[in-house]
Design a protein around this nucleic acid. Sequence first.
DNA 1: ATGGTGACTTGGC
DNA 2: TGCCAAGCCACCA
Length: 103
Amino acid sequence: MNEVPAEQRIYAVLAAILCGSVATYGQVGKLAGLPRGGRLVGRTLRNLPADSSLPWHRVINASGKISLPADSGGFKRQKARLQEEGLLVNGNRISLRQYQWQP
DNA sequence: ATGGTGACTTGGC
DNA sequence: TGCCAAGCCACCA
């Protein structure tokens, strides 16, 4: 019957990421039941409404960097929010020191 | 249907 | 550390 759409589960995973921590796209996808859905996660965040209160800014790629283009508004917004949560952001890269979210 | 693209990941050099 | 190739999934022309 009605199964919960993958997007819904991705939202739940996002909401579970602790403040001050970040997770990779692959990590989120894996926890949402999409072991190879890194791209799906990215596409889902891309489609998020502007009024969504989900911490999408806590999601970065496996290289520990922000995947958005450095000249886009989303990049600046994500960087600013991460810094407000106490994370050190150097350029497009997050200074990793126990940054990875642990479920 | 087919090919190209993207807020990805991993392995190799 | 950084770039490249292959794999993966969904969307678009």
